[in-house]
Nucleic acid binder design. Structure first.
Lengths: 256, 256
DNA sequence: TAGTGGTCTAGACCACTTA
DNA sequence: AAGTGGTCTAGACCACTAG
């Protein structure tokens, strides 16, 4: 009789150190995560029930609950009400690529922002649609070149709504540094944004500014930000040299 | 005397419906999230303390705790031990692009996988390095074309370690469908993986297979999977037509 | 009916910050 | 010293699943 997919009544139980700086729920999560990684529990297996874990590790139900929630968020296990907690197989769809690295670049002193152009322009059909304006209404058009150790890395273009009754818009969006956008220090007027990434070919202007050769592929990172009235206030995009922006991530159980 | 950045003693308190199917912690999270979105609490403001929230909404400390943790994970607030809970400004670095859409494509019946080529090849220097083999050791080389409604969308190439003593490797990785890799149904032997995305130019072979024109930009999605012994077993990459794979996400407070 | 996870209570102690 | 969030207890009731 196979018991692989049944709840286990015995498994290696490590002791939780109550004097550790590390919280009990984190210790238990590490123990179980390591046991999954080492094959003590294999994909598809059922973990011991929460009641058994409480008893074996001498912690309260809430502590076990927190551990299980943590592992479930990580994608290590999945819970099914009324049935149990099960070890998940690797799931590629769980992977995600974050913009943390891009934010780190903005905090890097080697990064500099050069303002190429700021002027008032009338919205064309596309800009008007994005910013929810009428065609011909005035917008602020900004072009920036972002360098790392004086090497061109990103080219940014942006349209801001221009509303004389709301001068705060331009004031709050730091025209030169862009940094507030990333670390949240200067964009207290923005509520939410939509982001999109595509692969693109550089045109001649972009090739010149970014000092590459034609043809070159790059990331196109578009943003559309809304204020607290849900009005779009900023539409723009970064052209990112692929060698300065790396999207990498891990999936599954990673021993850090 | 301004009290904007001080703890609030009064704010609109909505009633939590204890008979709702929606858990109390989720109701409270929705209430607070909406109040942040509506400007009742603004970026930088301190939320009422957990004790006050308990009292005002008539829930236990653990319930408030769970609510605050939820909002902190979402990036809506940040907590500082000993000081309080504060509303965060929009933070671009918090954004992440997931592969969920790609996984959905694999579950789509319109998606088909055509096996172009499967053969044993000797590892070159690069492949050997990736799979931790000696140059010249045998690998399984697989080429697949993935179509959506008969339109070529992705081109996949993959090297698998070839070990006669471990035939399970090839058996478990479903050669034809690839589906198990995404939904976790068929990859119980894989423990973890590294993923990388770059922008690339298509070469002539890729242009022909994907039926586009030269020059074309596309996503290059590389994967390297490890088994439960931490040995690399699969290295490969997808060439993704940008029009079939959209990386989009939101940041900040989004009213769904 | 027995076992499971999901939620919740009403406190407690601690470490930390600020005044 | 007072207030804050972080952790934890030792239970409870519920909805769901399975035999």
């Amino acid at each position: 009789m196979k018991t692989n997919r049944m709840s286990r009544n015995d498994w290696p139980v490590e002791i939780i150190d109550r004097d550790s700086y590390e919280p009990a729920y984190a210790q238990l999560a590490n123990i179980l995560r390591r046991q999954v990684a080492n094959g003590v529990f294999r994909p598809g297996d059922q973990l011991p029930s929460e009641a058994k874990l409480c008893q074996s590790y001498q912690v309260s139900p809430m502590t076990v609950r927190r551990t299980i929630n943590l592992l479930a968020e990580e994608g290590v296990v999945s819970t099914v009400k009324g049935r149990g907690t099960f070890v998940k197989a690797l799931e590629l769809g769980h992977a995600a690529f974050g913009l943390q690295e891009l934010q780190n670049l903005f905090n890097d002193p080697a990064m500099a922002v050069r303002l190429l152009d700021v002027r008032i322009v009338s919205a064309n059909e596309r800009t008007a649609r994005k910013l929810n304006l009428a065609v011909g209404q005035k917008t602020i058009y900004i072009r920036r070149l972002l360098t790392i150790n004086d090497n061109p890395a990103f080219y940014h273009r942006e349209y801001l709504i221009y509303d004389p009754t709301r001068p705060i818009v331009e004031a709050e969006l730091e025209v030169t540094t862009l940094q507030g956008l990333f670390d949240g220090t200067g964009s207290a007027m923005l509520k939410r944004g939509k982001l999109k990434i595509e692969a693109c070919l550089l045109n001649e202007e972009e090739v010149t500014l970014l000092q590459t050769t034609l043809p070159t592929a790059a990331f196109y990172l578009e943003h559309l930000f809304y204020d607290f009235n849900d009005c779009p206030v900023s539409w723009g995009w970064f052209i990112c040299r692929s060698d300065y922006l790396h999207f990498a991530t891990r999936v599954g159980i990673n021993n850090d």
